[in-house]
Amino acid sequence: MNKKKWILLCILIVVVMILLPLSLSLLFALITALLLDGAVQRLQKHLKFGRGLAVFAAFTAYVALLGMIGYFTVKVVFDQFVSFASSLPEIIKEVYASIIQPTLTKWEQVQETIPRGVVQSLEESFTAGLKSFEEGVNGFLNSLLDFIAFLPGFMFEILIYLIALYLFSLELPRLKRMIADSLTEKTKEKLTLVLEELNKAGIGFVKAQIFLSALTFVMAFAGLSILGVPYTVVLSLLIVIVDILPILGTGSFLVPWAIYAFFQNDQALSIGLVILFLVITVVRRVIEPKIFSSSMGITPLAALISLFIGFKLLGFIGLFAGPALVIVFDTLRKARMIRTDFKF
């Protein structure tokens, strides 16, 4: 009998692993329903709402909050993006007049004093650079078209997510009873402990990410405002996005900008951008392990190692998967489902 149970469990795990990538909307809906269940229960307890009315109230408030955040974010970003796009031709013209044209003029004067072989090699390198730049622009445009094509499917996924969230919220007590009835008391105790720890760590992880991103946005917005840079909201959001990537995330945005400002003879802006880059990078890297450790209940060293190894192995996804695996392992160890008290 035990053997049959293990076989069924293995089959179930394989099926879940196959279906999980195809059911992310449903998975996120279930997780959200679990997170909102506390609010639903409080409405039932304090306001004496029935389950259906409590779920409807919590769901409506959640959707309204998402809608407000989405509306204001899209509005601000769209307005500043349109303003930036309208000034882009002038920026390109200025770059050509102040950097490209003087460089070409100097090159025409200098190339007469350089051996022909060196000139040819430099011209080939320049041509290769232009080709790479052209390929990069084409890649960006293709990515933009792919994103536009992706939007209808994304909106459909959002619709499925919201419908599933509402239905999961309604059915959550029955789902919990079904799972509880199929488990022994000992297994229920362990599973309850695991779920409580994972829920606590998961909420802590989300809070840590939101706090770090908000801190980065504030530092970027304040720094760009002091430097008198336009489109501060859009640029600060871009800095937040690239800063999620570890090591030198903001460097891929701020350093080229600082170099451009230097060639524009705007040394104050160039130095200011470098200082802003250093401040954001140092502050984030110093407090990141501490924030993760205090939010998720793991040590700063474990948080730092999990972030670093996770990124090295899985890239961006590893930033989430690394700490998550540490949390799962630590939770299973506390539930004594994994034994670590052995000796060699």
Results as ranks from 00 to 15, higher is better:
R177A: 15
A164N: 09
L167S: 12
E157I: 00
L170F: 13
P173C: 07
P152M: 02
L172C: 07
S182H: 11
M155W: 00
Y161E: 03
F168H: 06
L165C: 03
E157K: 01
I160K: 08
L162Q: 03
L159Y: 09
L175F: 13
I179S: 08
D181F: 10
G153E: 02
F156A: 10
L162G: 00
M178C: 12
S182T: 13
L165S: 01
I163H: 07
I158R: 01
I179L: 11
R174H: 14
M155L: 11
M178L: 15
E185T: 13
M155A: 05
S182W: 09
F154P: 03
R177H: 15
T184A: 04
M155E: 04
G153N: 09
S169F: 07
K176V: 11
F156R: 01
L162M: 05
D181A: 13
L165V: 04
L162I: 02
F168R: 06
L172Y: 09
E171M: 15
Y161N: 09
E171W: 15
L170I: 15
L183S: 05
M178T: 14
K176G: 07
E157D: 09
L175I: 12
P173H: 07
F168K: 05
L172S: 03
E171N: 14
P152I: 00
P173W: 06
A180T: 08
I158P: 01
S182N: 13
E185R: 13
I158G: 02
M178W: 13
L159S: 10
R177D: 15
A180N: 10
M155F: 08
G153L: 03
P152W: 00
L170P: 09
S182E: 12
I163W: 08
L167W: 10
P152C: 02
L151V: 13
L172E: 05
K176M: 09
T184G: 11
G153H: 04
A164D: 06
L172V: 02
I160S: 00
T184I: 01
F154H: 04
E157M: 01
T184F: 03
R174G: 12
L159C: 10
P173E: 07
P152Y: 01
